[in-house]
């Protein structure tokens, strides 16, 4: 193990942590808005996967990563529209529809991918990187912190923007009201269903972007079922963050580091089966839930459809 603590190892560990954290960060930020508004968005896994598929497809056809990200957001939003219509407008059960949508997207993307690419898994070229002279040349942290694709910094910016939105703006208050006490918001003249639809669509866009990042930058290709629970981890992050975007960022970095450590160990030649290594992020989530689950704070009206005048 003595050879582990080299500059190259640390650098790749940090890089891996960021690459693994960004999809979870985006999904977690998206889910947070849904939960704030009172919708438990279990369909986020499906939105992410659709984002990964569409994001990859667009990037592959147009050879533009940015259009790929747009395509990914669009993919996530498409799934979110179904979720919003069924669960917010029609008030169907959020958990069952969420699971159903996730399964449906898993099937659909695997099917489409099968007929488009058969068993070839084409790759995208490596992404261009932001190069900040001076900073990028720093040892260890240079290439990993300052040499990433621009989208990483936009994701970090989103944390700050959302924190501001939740704390300082009317929109943030309205969102919380829709989740804590929809009836009160309704009486005050707010549009409960409208704000919830907005929140679900936002979740779709963020999750889709996270999926597109996963496919286009994380992996460089699309694989059926490739999200593998990242969306669900996003739900946990949102639950534990108690409505604060910064905590989603911290949580996703911790999980990203755990993921990247395990990959790094694997590369370093330990002979633990991959199954055990893949268990670690989920085990970490369970550990966190056992230790801090009690402190997770969820909006009062989460999971319940709102219908005016219903008791």
């Amino acid at each position: 193990m003595s050879g582990l603590l080299t500059e190259a190892f640390l650098s790749s560990l940090l890089t891996g942590a960021i690459i693994a954290a960004i999809p979870m960060l985006l999904a977690g930020l998206g889910e947070q808005m849904s939960e704030k508004a009172g919708v438990l968005n279990i369909g986020i896994e499906g939105m992410m996967l659709m984002g990964a598929y569409m994001g990859f497809l667009v990037a592959f056809k147009t050879e533009s990563l940015w259009l790929g990200f747009l395509g990914g957001m669009l993919g996530g939003v498409l799934v979110a529209i179904v979720m919003a219509v069924l669960c917010v407008r029609l008030g169907l059960n959020q958990i069952v529809i969420g699971i159903g949508l996730t399964l449906g997207v898993e099937g659909l993307t695997a099917l489409l991918h099968h007929f488009q690419f058969s068993r070839t898994y084409p790759r995208l070229p490596a992404p261009e990187r932001l190069n900040i002279p001076g900073l990028t040349d720093l040892p260890v942290i240079g290439p990993s912190l300052f040499g990433r694709h621009l989208i990483v910094y936009l994701a970090l910016l989103a944390v700050a923007v959302l924190a501001f939105l939740y704390r300082r703006t009317n929109l943030g208050m309205t969102l919380s009201a829709a989740g804590e006490s929809p009836a009160a918001l309704d009486v005050a003249g707010g549009n409960v269903l409208g704000i919830r639809v907005f929140a679900v669509l936002f979740t779709g866009a963020m999750a889709g972007l996270g999926g597109a990042y996963l496919a286009n930058i994380g992996a460089g290709l699309f694989l059926p079922f490739m999200t593998g629970g990242a969306g669900f981890i996003g739900i946990v992050l949102a639950m534990l963050a108690r409505g604060r975007p910064l905590w989603v960022l911290i949580g996703s970095l911790i999980f990203g580091a755990a993921l990247s450590l395990t990959t790094a160990l694997q590369v370093a030649g330990s002979n633990i089966p991959t199954d055990v290594i893949q268990m670690l992020p989920f085990a970490a989530v369970m550990l966190v839930l056992v230790l801090f689950g009690r402190r997770a704070k969820l909006p009062a009206a989460l999971g319940a459809a709102y219908e005016r005048g219903a008791r």
Binding site: F232, M286, L298
Partner: peptide, 30 residues
């Protein structure tokens, strides 16, 4: 966690499911 801490079971059962699937495979291999 659900009975005594009130932790939402949707997420805990999902996480345990991912763990269980991987553990089953590990048990078979090892």
């Amino acid at each position: 966690l659900k009975a005594y801490q009130g932790v939402n079971e949707i997420i805990t059962t999902l996480m345990m499911s991912f763990l269980g699937v991987l553990l089953a495979s590990t048990l078979v291999k090892l």
